[in-house]
Design a protein around this nucleic acid. Structure first.
Lengths: 201, 201
DNA sequence: TTGTTAACCAAACAAACGTTTGCTATTCTA
DNA sequence: TAGAATAGCAAACGTTTGTTTGGTTAACAA
Protein backbone atom coordinates (compact mmCIF):
# COMPACT_ATOMS: atom_id res chain seq x y z
CA UNK A 1 0.00 0.00 0.00
CA UNK A 2 2.99 2.33 0.22
CA UNK A 3 3.14 4.88 -2.54
CA UNK A 4 5.63 4.13 -5.30
CA UNK A 5 7.84 7.09 -6.18
CA UNK A 6 8.04 7.90 -9.88
CA UNK A 7 11.21 9.11 -11.45
CA UNK A 8 11.75 12.08 -13.70
CA UNK A 9 12.50 9.89 -16.69
CA UNK A 10 9.27 7.98 -16.43
CA UNK A 11 7.81 7.82 -19.93
CA UNK A 12 4.40 6.52 -19.02
CA UNK A 13 2.77 9.64 -20.37
CA UNK A 14 4.55 9.41 -23.71
CA UNK A 15 3.45 5.81 -23.86
CA UNK A 16 -0.17 6.76 -23.25
CA UNK A 17 0.04 9.49 -25.88
CA UNK A 18 1.38 7.12 -28.50
CA UNK A 19 -1.16 4.43 -27.66
CA UNK A 20 -3.90 7.01 -27.72
CA UNK A 21 -3.04 8.22 -31.19
CA UNK A 22 -2.77 4.72 -32.63
CA UNK A 23 -5.89 3.31 -30.98
CA UNK A 24 -7.88 6.33 -32.13
CA UNK A 25 -6.93 5.95 -35.77
CA UNK A 26 -6.46 2.18 -36.07
CA UNK A 27 -8.88 0.81 -33.51
CA UNK A 28 -8.03 -1.81 -30.92
CA UNK A 29 -7.48 -4.81 -33.17
CA UNK A 30 -5.68 -2.75 -35.76
CA UNK A 31 -3.02 -1.56 -33.35
CA UNK A 32 -0.21 -3.81 -32.15
CA UNK A 33 1.98 -3.53 -29.11
CA UNK A 34 4.95 -3.27 -31.45
CA UNK A 35 3.39 -0.26 -33.21
CA UNK A 36 2.81 1.41 -29.87
CA UNK A 37 6.32 0.62 -28.70
CA UNK A 38 7.90 2.04 -31.82
CA UNK A 39 5.77 5.20 -31.66
CA UNK A 40 6.78 5.83 -28.08
CA UNK A 41 10.43 4.97 -28.58
CA UNK A 42 10.46 1.83 -26.47
CA UNK A 43 10.80 -1.86 -27.06
CA UNK A 44 7.64 -3.96 -27.01
CA UNK A 45 8.49 -5.69 -23.75
CA UNK A 46 9.02 -2.40 -21.96
CA UNK A 47 5.35 -1.57 -22.15
CA UNK A 48 4.73 -4.36 -19.68
CA UNK A 49 6.62 -2.48 -17.04
CA UNK A 50 3.80 0.06 -17.12
CA UNK A 51 0.75 -2.06 -17.91
CA UNK A 52 0.18 -5.78 -17.46
CA UNK A 53 -1.60 -6.27 -20.79
CA UNK A 54 -2.78 -4.61 -23.98
CA UNK A 55 -6.32 -4.50 -22.61
CA UNK A 56 -5.14 -2.64 -19.52
CA UNK A 57 -3.23 -0.16 -21.62
CA UNK A 58 -6.33 0.49 -23.70
CA UNK A 59 -8.33 0.95 -20.52
CA UNK A 60 -5.86 3.51 -19.19
CA UNK A 61 -6.12 5.50 -22.41
CA UNK A 62 -9.89 5.21 -22.42
CA UNK A 63 -10.23 6.33 -18.80
CA UNK A 64 -7.93 9.27 -19.43
CA UNK A 65 -10.20 10.25 -22.33
CA UNK A 66 -13.29 10.11 -20.17
CA UNK A 67 -11.55 12.16 -17.49
CA UNK A 68 -10.66 14.81 -20.02
CA UNK A 69 -14.05 15.14 -21.70
CA UNK A 70 -15.86 15.13 -18.37
CA UNK A 71 -13.61 17.79 -16.94
CA UNK A 72 -14.07 20.05 -19.95
CA UNK A 73 -17.78 19.33 -19.99
CA UNK A 74 -18.27 20.29 -16.35
CA UNK A 75 -16.26 23.45 -16.70
CA UNK A 76 -17.94 24.68 -19.89
CA UNK A 77 -21.50 23.73 -19.08
CA UNK A 78 -21.37 25.38 -15.67
CA UNK A 79 -20.94 28.76 -17.32
CA UNK A 80 -24.47 28.74 -18.70
CA UNK A 81 -27.98 28.43 -17.33
CA UNK A 82 -30.21 27.96 -20.37
CA UNK A 83 -31.03 24.28 -20.82
CA UNK A 84 -30.80 24.24 -24.62
CA UNK A 85 -27.65 26.34 -24.62
CA UNK A 86 -26.09 23.98 -22.08
CA UNK A 87 -26.75 21.06 -24.39
CA UNK A 88 -25.31 22.93 -27.33
CA UNK A 89 -22.16 23.71 -25.38
CA UNK A 90 -21.85 20.08 -24.34
CA UNK A 91 -22.15 18.83 -27.90
CA UNK A 92 -19.66 21.38 -29.17
CA UNK A 93 -17.25 20.24 -26.49
CA UNK A 94 -17.76 16.61 -27.47
CA UNK A 95 -17.17 17.19 -31.16
CA UNK A 96 -14.23 19.50 -30.65
CA UNK A 97 -12.59 17.20 -28.14
CA UNK A 98 -13.08 14.07 -30.21
CA UNK A 99 -11.96 15.53 -33.50
CA UNK A 100 -9.21 17.93 -32.57
CA UNK A 101 -8.26 18.21 -28.95
CA UNK A 102 -7.54 14.73 -27.72
CA UNK A 103 -6.98 11.33 -29.24
CA UNK A 104 -7.94 9.79 -25.92
CA UNK A 105 -11.51 10.84 -26.44
CA UNK A 106 -11.34 9.57 -30.00
CA UNK A 107 -10.52 6.20 -28.52
CA UNK A 108 -13.60 6.34 -26.34
CA UNK A 109 -15.68 6.98 -29.43
CA UNK A 110 -14.00 4.44 -31.66
CA UNK A 111 -13.34 1.40 -29.51
CA UNK A 112 -16.47 -0.48 -28.53
CA UNK A 113 -16.30 -2.10 -25.09
CA UNK A 114 -17.07 -5.57 -26.41
CA UNK A 115 -13.94 -5.45 -28.55
CA UNK A 116 -11.96 -5.69 -25.31
CA UNK A 117 -13.75 -8.46 -23.43
CA UNK A 118 -11.24 -8.54 -20.55
CA UNK A 119 -12.22 -5.02 -19.55
CA UNK A 120 -15.55 -4.46 -21.27
CA UNK A 121 -17.43 -3.95 -18.00
CA UNK A 122 -14.99 -1.28 -16.86
CA UNK A 123 -15.08 0.43 -20.23
CA UNK A 124 -18.87 0.60 -20.13
CA UNK A 125 -18.72 2.05 -16.63
CA UNK A 126 -16.29 4.71 -17.79
CA UNK A 127 -18.41 5.61 -20.76
CA UNK A 128 -21.47 5.86 -18.54
CA UNK A 129 -19.68 8.42 -16.42
CA UNK A 130 -19.80 10.73 -19.43
CA UNK A 131 -23.16 9.72 -20.86
CA UNK A 132 -24.78 10.36 -17.50
CA UNK A 133 -23.93 14.02 -17.97
CA UNK A 134 -25.66 14.10 -21.36
CA UNK A 135 -28.63 12.36 -19.83
CA UNK A 136 -28.98 15.09 -17.22
CA UNK A 137 -28.91 17.79 -19.86
CA UNK A 138 -31.50 16.08 -22.03
CA UNK A 139 -33.76 15.44 -19.06
CA UNK A 140 -33.61 19.14 -18.21
CA UNK A 141 -34.78 20.27 -21.65
CA UNK A 142 -38.15 22.01 -21.72
CA UNK A 143 -40.05 20.08 -24.37
CA UNK A 144 -43.19 21.27 -26.07
CA UNK A 145 -46.01 18.72 -26.05
CA UNK A 146 -45.75 16.38 -28.99
CA UNK A 147 -48.22 16.66 -31.83
CA UNK A 148 -47.85 12.95 -32.50
CA UNK A 149 -46.66 10.10 -30.27
CA UNK A 150 -45.43 11.14 -26.81
CA UNK A 151 -41.80 12.17 -26.74
CA UNK A 152 -39.41 9.60 -25.31
CA UNK A 153 -36.44 11.34 -23.74
CA UNK A 154 -34.45 8.14 -23.76
CA UNK A 155 -34.71 7.95 -27.52
CA UNK A 156 -33.90 11.64 -27.79
CA UNK A 157 -30.79 11.12 -25.69
CA UNK A 158 -29.60 8.17 -27.77
CA UNK A 159 -30.34 10.07 -30.94
CA UNK A 160 -28.20 12.98 -29.79
CA UNK A 161 -25.36 10.76 -28.62
CA UNK A 162 -25.44 8.82 -31.88
CA UNK A 163 -25.38 11.89 -34.07
CA UNK A 164 -22.56 13.39 -32.03
CA UNK A 165 -20.42 10.27 -31.90
CA UNK A 166 -20.79 9.82 -35.64
CA UNK A 167 -19.17 13.18 -36.32
CA UNK A 168 -15.83 11.47 -35.78
CA UNK A 169 -16.30 9.53 -39.02
CA UNK A 170 -17.07 12.51 -41.22
CA UNK A 171 -15.61 15.60 -39.56
CA UNK A 172 -12.81 17.27 -41.49
CA UNK A 173 -11.03 20.30 -40.15
CA UNK A 174 -11.41 23.34 -42.37
CA UNK A 175 -15.08 22.68 -43.00
CA UNK A 176 -17.97 23.31 -40.63
CA UNK A 177 -16.59 24.05 -37.18
CA UNK A 178 -17.56 21.92 -34.15
CA UNK A 179 -19.44 24.81 -32.56
CA UNK A 180 -21.44 25.30 -35.76
CA UNK A 181 -22.24 21.60 -36.00
CA UNK A 182 -23.50 21.56 -32.43
CA UNK A 183 -25.57 24.68 -33.11
CA UNK A 184 -27.12 23.00 -36.17
CA UNK A 185 -27.94 19.88 -34.20
CA UNK A 186 -29.74 21.89 -31.54
CA UNK A 187 -31.47 24.09 -34.09
CA UNK A 188 -32.88 21.05 -35.86
CA UNK A 189 -34.22 19.72 -32.60
CA UNK A 190 -35.63 22.78 -30.98
CA UNK A 191 -37.16 24.58 -33.91
CA UNK A 192 -39.99 23.33 -36.07
CA UNK A 193 -38.52 21.83 -39.20
CA UNK A 194 -41.91 21.13 -40.65
CA UNK A 195 -43.89 23.91 -42.26
CA UNK A 196 -46.87 24.54 -40.04
CA UNK A 197 -49.59 23.72 -42.53
CA UNK A 198 -48.55 20.14 -42.96
CA UNK A 199 -48.67 19.42 -39.23
CA UNK A 200 -52.42 19.19 -39.25
CA UNK A 201 -52.55 17.67 -42.71
CA UNK B 1 -14.45 -14.38 -69.40
CA UNK B 2 -16.46 -17.57 -69.81
CA UNK B 3 -19.06 -18.07 -67.11
CA UNK B 4 -18.11 -20.60 -64.47
CA UNK B 5 -20.84 -23.12 -63.69
CA UNK B 6 -21.62 -23.52 -59.99
CA UNK B 7 -22.54 -26.87 -58.55
CA UNK B 8 -25.39 -27.77 -56.27
CA UNK B 9 -23.11 -28.39 -53.32
CA UNK B 10 -21.48 -25.00 -53.55
CA UNK B 11 -21.32 -23.64 -50.01
CA UNK B 12 -20.39 -20.10 -50.87
CA UNK B 13 -23.62 -18.83 -49.40
CA UNK B 14 -23.12 -20.65 -46.10
CA UNK B 15 -19.65 -19.19 -46.03
CA UNK B 16 -20.99 -15.67 -46.52
CA UNK B 17 -23.60 -16.22 -43.83
CA UNK B 18 -21.03 -17.36 -41.30
CA UNK B 19 -18.63 -14.54 -42.16
CA UNK B 20 -21.49 -12.10 -41.95
CA UNK B 21 -22.49 -13.15 -38.47
CA UNK B 22 -18.94 -13.09 -37.14
CA UNK B 23 -17.92 -9.81 -38.74
CA UNK B 24 -21.10 -8.16 -37.45
CA UNK B 25 -20.49 -9.16 -33.85
CA UNK B 26 -16.71 -9.23 -33.68
CA UNK B 27 -15.65 -6.64 -36.20
CA UNK B 28 -13.03 -7.16 -38.90
CA UNK B 29 -9.92 -7.43 -36.75
CA UNK B 30 -11.72 -9.49 -34.14
CA UNK B 31 -12.71 -12.20 -36.59
CA UNK B 32 -10.20 -14.72 -37.93
CA UNK B 33 -10.35 -16.87 -41.03
CA UNK B 34 -10.21 -19.90 -38.74
CA UNK B 35 -13.30 -18.71 -36.87
CA UNK B 36 -15.14 -18.22 -40.12
CA UNK B 37 -14.03 -21.60 -41.43
CA UNK B 38 -15.19 -23.39 -38.30
CA UNK B 39 -18.56 -21.60 -38.29
CA UNK B 40 -19.18 -22.57 -41.89
CA UNK B 41 -17.94 -26.13 -41.52
CA UNK B 42 -14.88 -25.82 -43.72
CA UNK B 43 -11.15 -25.79 -43.24
CA UNK B 44 -9.40 -22.40 -43.27
CA UNK B 45 -7.70 -22.98 -46.59
CA UNK B 46 -10.97 -23.82 -48.30
CA UNK B 47 -12.16 -20.27 -47.98
CA UNK B 48 -9.52 -19.32 -50.53
CA UNK B 49 -11.28 -21.33 -53.18
CA UNK B 50 -14.11 -18.80 -52.95
CA UNK B 51 -12.27 -15.56 -52.13
CA UNK B 52 -8.65 -14.60 -52.68
CA UNK B 53 -8.26 -12.84 -49.32
CA UNK B 54 -9.92 -11.92 -46.07
CA UNK B 55 -10.43 -8.38 -47.32
CA UNK B 56 -12.27 -9.67 -50.39
CA UNK B 57 -14.47 -11.88 -48.26
CA UNK B 58 -15.36 -8.89 -46.11
CA UNK B 59 -16.13 -6.90 -49.20
CA UNK B 60 -18.46 -9.59 -50.53
CA UNK B 61 -20.38 -9.61 -47.24
CA UNK B 62 -20.47 -5.83 -47.15
CA UNK B 63 -21.73 -5.52 -50.71
CA UNK B 64 -24.39 -8.14 -50.06
CA UNK B 65 -25.53 -6.05 -47.08
CA UNK B 66 -25.75 -2.91 -49.16
CA UNK B 67 -27.71 -4.80 -51.83
CA UNK B 68 -30.18 -6.00 -49.24
CA UNK B 69 -30.79 -2.70 -47.47
CA UNK B 70 -31.05 -0.82 -50.78
CA UNK B 71 -33.52 -3.30 -52.19
CA UNK B 72 -35.73 -3.15 -49.12
CA UNK B 73 -35.38 0.62 -49.01
CA UNK B 74 -36.48 1.09 -52.61
CA UNK B 75 -39.42 -1.22 -52.23
CA UNK B 76 -40.71 0.26 -48.97
CA UNK B 77 -40.13 3.92 -49.71
CA UNK B 78 -41.87 3.72 -53.08
CA UNK B 79 -45.15 2.92 -51.35
CA UNK B 80 -45.42 6.40 -49.90
CA UNK B 81 -45.49 9.96 -51.18
CA UNK B 82 -45.16 12.15 -48.12
CA UNK B 83 -41.57 13.31 -47.72
CA UNK B 84 -41.41 13.00 -43.94
CA UNK B 85 -43.17 9.68 -43.97
CA UNK B 86 -40.77 8.40 -46.59
CA UNK B 87 -37.84 9.30 -44.34
CA UNK B 88 -39.51 7.62 -41.39
CA UNK B 89 -40.02 4.45 -43.41
CA UNK B 90 -36.42 4.51 -44.53
CA UNK B 91 -35.09 4.85 -41.00
CA UNK B 92 -37.37 2.11 -39.74
CA UNK B 93 -36.06 -0.12 -42.50
CA UNK B 94 -32.48 0.73 -41.60
CA UNK B 95 -32.90 0.00 -37.91
CA UNK B 96 -34.92 -3.15 -38.45
CA UNK B 97 -32.53 -4.50 -41.04
CA UNK B 98 -29.41 -3.74 -39.04
CA UNK B 99 -30.66 -5.08 -35.76
CA UNK B 100 -32.79 -8.04 -36.68
CA UNK B 101 -33.05 -8.94 -40.33
CA UNK B 102 -29.55 -9.26 -41.65
CA UNK B 103 -26.06 -9.52 -40.24
CA UNK B 104 -24.73 -8.31 -43.58
CA UNK B 105 -26.12 -4.88 -42.92
CA UNK B 106 -24.75 -5.02 -39.40
CA UNK B 107 -21.34 -5.45 -41.00
CA UNK B 108 -21.87 -2.35 -43.09
CA UNK B 109 -22.62 -0.42 -39.93
CA UNK B 110 -19.84 -1.88 -37.81
CA UNK B 111 -16.82 -2.17 -40.08
CA UNK B 112 -15.28 1.15 -41.02
CA UNK B 113 -13.76 1.22 -44.52
CA UNK B 114 -10.35 2.30 -43.28
CA UNK B 115 -10.08 -0.85 -41.22
CA UNK B 116 -9.74 -2.73 -44.51
CA UNK B 117 -7.22 -0.62 -46.41
CA UNK B 118 -6.97 -3.04 -49.36
CA UNK B 119 -10.62 -2.41 -50.22
CA UNK B 120 -11.46 0.80 -48.42
CA UNK B 121 -12.26 2.68 -51.62
CA UNK B 122 -14.70 0.02 -52.75
CA UNK B 123 -16.30 -0.14 -49.32
CA UNK B 124 -16.85 3.61 -49.32
CA UNK B 125 -18.38 3.39 -52.79
CA UNK B 126 -20.75 0.67 -51.62
CA UNK B 127 -21.78 2.63 -48.56
CA UNK B 128 -22.39 5.69 -50.70
CA UNK B 129 -24.82 3.69 -52.80
CA UNK B 130 -27.03 3.52 -49.74
CA UNK B 131 -26.33 6.92 -48.25
CA UNK B 132 -27.22 8.55 -51.54
CA UNK B 133 -30.77 7.33 -50.99
CA UNK B 134 -30.92 8.97 -47.58
CA UNK B 135 -29.53 12.14 -49.06
CA UNK B 136 -32.33 12.27 -51.60
CA UNK B 137 -34.94 11.86 -48.89
CA UNK B 138 -33.43 14.55 -46.70
CA UNK B 139 -33.10 16.93 -49.62
CA UNK B 140 -36.78 16.45 -50.39
CA UNK B 141 -37.93 17.43 -46.90
CA UNK B 142 -39.98 20.62 -46.70
CA UNK B 143 -38.17 22.63 -44.05
CA UNK B 144 -39.61 25.60 -42.24
CA UNK B 145 -37.37 28.67 -42.25
CA UNK B 146 -34.93 28.58 -39.39
CA UNK B 147 -35.36 30.95 -36.46
CA UNK B 148 -31.61 30.94 -35.88
CA UNK B 149 -28.72 30.06 -38.22
CA UNK B 150 -29.73 28.83 -41.68
CA UNK B 151 -30.42 25.10 -41.83
CA UNK B 152 -27.68 23.00 -43.38
CA UNK B 153 -29.16 19.92 -44.99
CA UNK B 154 -25.79 18.25 -45.10
CA UNK B 155 -25.52 18.45 -41.33
CA UNK B 156 -29.10 17.26 -41.00
CA UNK B 157 -28.34 14.27 -43.18
CA UNK B 158 -25.24 13.33 -41.21
CA UNK B 159 -27.12 13.81 -37.98
CA UNK B 160 -29.83 11.40 -39.10
CA UNK B 161 -27.37 8.84 -40.40
CA UNK B 162 -25.37 9.02 -37.19
CA UNK B 163 -28.37 8.61 -34.93
CA UNK B 164 -29.63 5.71 -37.00
CA UNK B 165 -26.32 3.90 -37.26
CA UNK B 166 -25.81 4.23 -33.54
CA UNK B 167 -28.98 2.25 -32.81
CA UNK B 168 -26.96 -0.88 -33.47
CA UNK B 169 -25.00 -0.30 -30.28
CA UNK B 170 -27.98 0.12 -27.98
CA UNK B 171 -30.95 -1.59 -29.61
CA UNK B 172 -32.30 -4.57 -27.70
CA UNK B 173 -35.19 -6.61 -29.03
CA UNK B 174 -38.17 -6.59 -26.73
CA UNK B 175 -37.87 -2.89 -26.01
CA UNK B 176 -38.83 -0.02 -28.29
CA UNK B 177 -39.50 -1.38 -31.77
CA UNK B 178 -37.58 -0.14 -34.81
CA UNK B 179 -40.66 1.48 -36.28
CA UNK B 180 -41.28 3.34 -33.03
CA UNK B 181 -37.67 4.48 -32.84
CA UNK B 182 -37.85 5.83 -36.39
CA UNK B 183 -41.12 7.57 -35.58
CA UNK B 184 -39.54 9.22 -32.54
CA UNK B 185 -36.56 10.38 -34.55
CA UNK B 186 -38.80 12.03 -37.10
CA UNK B 187 -41.08 13.47 -34.46
CA UNK B 188 -38.16 15.14 -32.73
CA UNK B 189 -37.05 16.69 -35.97
CA UNK B 190 -40.27 17.84 -37.48
CA UNK B 191 -42.13 19.10 -34.46
CA UNK B 192 -41.11 22.00 -32.27
CA UNK B 193 -39.40 20.61 -29.21
CA UNK B 194 -38.99 24.01 -27.66
CA UNK B 195 -41.88 25.68 -25.90
CA UNK B 196 -42.81 28.68 -27.95
CA UNK B 197 -42.09 31.36 -25.36
CA UNK B 198 -38.44 30.55 -25.11
CA UNK B 199 -37.87 30.84 -28.84
CA UNK B 200 -37.89 34.61 -28.73
CA UNK B 201 -36.20 34.77 -25.36
C1' DT C 1 29.05 8.28 -2.02
C1' DT C 2 26.76 4.19 -1.64
C1' DG C 3 22.68 1.12 -2.09
C1' DT C 4 18.33 0.59 -3.87
C1' DT C 5 15.02 0.25 -7.35
C1' DA C 6 12.58 2.44 -11.12
C1' DA C 7 12.69 2.08 -15.85
C1' DC C 8 14.07 0.22 -19.24
C1' DC C 9 16.81 -3.19 -23.02
C1' DA C 10 17.63 -7.57 -25.48
C1' DA C 11 16.03 -11.68 -26.76
C1' DA C 12 13.12 -15.07 -26.96
C1' DC C 13 8.53 -17.67 -26.28
C1' DA C 14 4.27 -20.09 -27.77
C1' DA C 15 0.21 -19.19 -30.04
C1' DA C 16 -2.50 -17.27 -33.60
C1' DC C 17 -2.55 -15.11 -37.86
C1' DG C 18 -3.51 -14.91 -43.19
C1' DT C 19 -2.21 -17.67 -46.80
C1' DT C 20 -0.19 -21.39 -50.09
C1' DT C 21 0.50 -25.84 -51.90
C1' DG C 22 -0.52 -30.48 -53.41
C1' DC C 23 -3.89 -33.76 -53.49
C1' DT C 24 -8.73 -35.92 -53.61
C1' DA C 25 -13.51 -36.67 -54.08
C1' DT C 26 -17.75 -35.36 -55.91
C1' DT C 27 -20.63 -33.36 -59.34
C1' DC C 28 -21.81 -32.31 -63.83
C1' DT C 29 -21.06 -32.47 -69.03
C1' DA C 30 -20.54 -34.62 -73.32
C1' DT D 1 -19.86 -43.89 -68.98
C1' DA D 2 -15.43 -41.25 -69.63
C1' DG D 3 -13.46 -36.93 -68.74
C1' DA D 4 -13.00 -32.57 -66.73
C1' DA D 5 -13.83 -29.16 -63.77
C1' DT D 6 -15.68 -27.93 -59.12
C1' DA D 7 -15.30 -27.79 -54.32
C1' DG D 8 -13.23 -28.90 -51.22
C1' DC D 9 -9.40 -31.52 -47.56
C1' DA D 10 -4.85 -31.98 -45.21
C1' DA D 11 -0.92 -29.98 -43.93
C1' DA D 12 2.17 -26.76 -43.79
C1' DC D 13 4.25 -22.04 -44.83
C1' DG D 14 6.37 -17.68 -43.00
C1' DT D 15 4.89 -13.79 -40.35
C1' DT D 16 2.91 -11.29 -36.66
C1' DT D 17 0.84 -11.41 -32.37
C1' DG D 18 0.71 -10.56 -27.11
C1' DT D 19 3.72 -11.66 -23.62
C1' DT D 20 7.75 -13.36 -20.49
C1' DT D 21 12.27 -13.60 -18.70
C1' DG D 22 16.75 -12.16 -17.22
C1' DG D 23 19.99 -8.71 -17.32
C1' DT D 24 21.42 -3.52 -17.37
C1' DT D 25 21.54 1.46 -16.46
C1' DA D 26 20.44 5.59 -14.53
C1' DA D 27 17.97 8.31 -10.95
C1' DC D 28 17.14 9.15 -6.40
C1' DA D 29 17.17 8.64 -1.00
C1' DA D 30 20.22 7.93 2.76
Amino acid sequence: MTAVAKRSNNRNEALLDAASSLFASGGYGGTSMRNIAKASGMLPGSIYYHYPSKADLLYAVYARGVDMICERHDRMVAACNDAWKRLEIALANHILTVTETSDDVGVMNRVLPDQVPERSTDLIAQRDRYEQRIRELVDALPLAPSGGPAHDRRILRLMIIGATSWTQTWYRSGHTRPEAIAAQFCAFLKQPLQIQQSIQQ
